[in-house]
Simulated assay, not measured.
Amino acid sequence: MTVYEGATAADGRTVCILVSRFNARVTERLLEGAVRTLLECGVGEADLDIVYVPGAWELPLAARRAARRGYAAIVALGCVIRGETAHFDHVSRAATDGLSRVQLTSDVPIGLGVLTPDTLDQALARAGGELGNAGTEAARAALRMADLQRQLGS
């Protein structure tokens, strides 16, 4: 039996982080966690690009463009906080569904660091607070999947 499991070692891989400017108090903390993790895993500063987009809605389009540029992995960071209208449902669904489609059509792994909490406090708890940092987790997932892509071949 052969068992495959992706490693977080960067091995010269290029990575693009997409980060939403909306809810910047949260997304900047996600970005800090993702950058720190990628550098610790061996991604060189010259191999790491950061692309800011207006909000989570714009993440899929930016991801599609990034995938075309040949990155080994993409990390998508955003935060959509539930409000009193259906806006939350539309934006969060569009962001996650769009990122999923980009990943499946491009074969470029995307680490999903898009938070969909009910409150700002819940978001902050997941952006370097008491519940960890979803940016860190998304960065590790992206690297692991990039390594699995290498192991499994085309």
Rank of each mutant, 00 (worst) to 15 (best):
residue 21 R to C: 02
residue 42 G to C: 02
residue 92 S to M: 12
residue 4 Y to C: 01
residue 3 V to L: 14
residue 59 L to K: 05
residue 125 A to S: 13
residue 13 R to V: 04
residue 48 L to D: 05
residue 146 A to G: 12
residue 41 C to I: 00
residue 123 A to E: 04
residue 119 T to R: 03
residue 56 A to S: 15
residue 77 L to R: 05
residue 66 A to C: 09
residue 55 G to E: 08
residue 17 I to R: 03
residue 78 G to W: 06
residue 82 R to S: 10
residue 138 A to H: 12
residue 10 A to R: 08
residue 119 T to I: 03
residue 105 T to W: 10
residue 50 I to D: 00
residue 135 G to H: 11
residue 149 Q to V: 13
residue 64 R to Q: 15
residue 27 T to A: 02
residue 96 T to K: 05
residue 144 R to K: 15
residue 75 V to F: 07
residue 25 R to W: 00
residue 1 M to N: 13
residue 83 G to V: 10
residue 150 R to I: 05
residue 129 G to T: 01
residue 32 E to H: 06
residue 10 A to P: 11
residue 125 A to C: 01
residue 98 G to I: 11
residue 73 A to V: 09
residue 152 L to N: 00
residue 34 A to M: 10
residue 42 G to I: 02
residue 53 V to E: 02
residue 58 E to Q: 13
residue 109 P to D: 08
residue 43 V to Y: 02
residue 78 G to S: 06
residue 41 C to G: 00
residue 84 E to D: 15
residue 45 E to T: 03
residue 80 V to W: 04
residue 23 N to R: 03
residue 54 P to C: 08
residue 148 L to A: 06
residue 120 L to Q: 01
residue 68 R to L: 12
residue 131 L to W: 13
residue 66 A to H: 05
residue 50 I to A: 01
residue 62 A to N: 04
residue 81 I to S: 10
residue 33 G to I: 10
residue 88 F to C: 11
residue 113 G to T: 08
residue 20 S to P: 07
residue 121 D to E: 14
residue 26 V to K: 01
residue 77 L to P: 03
residue 40 E to L: 09
residue 151 Q to R: 13
residue 96 T to M: 12
residue 140 R to T: 08
residue 9 A to V: 07
residue 72 A to S: 15
residue 8 T to Q: 12
residue 123 A to Q: 03
residue 116 T to L: 14
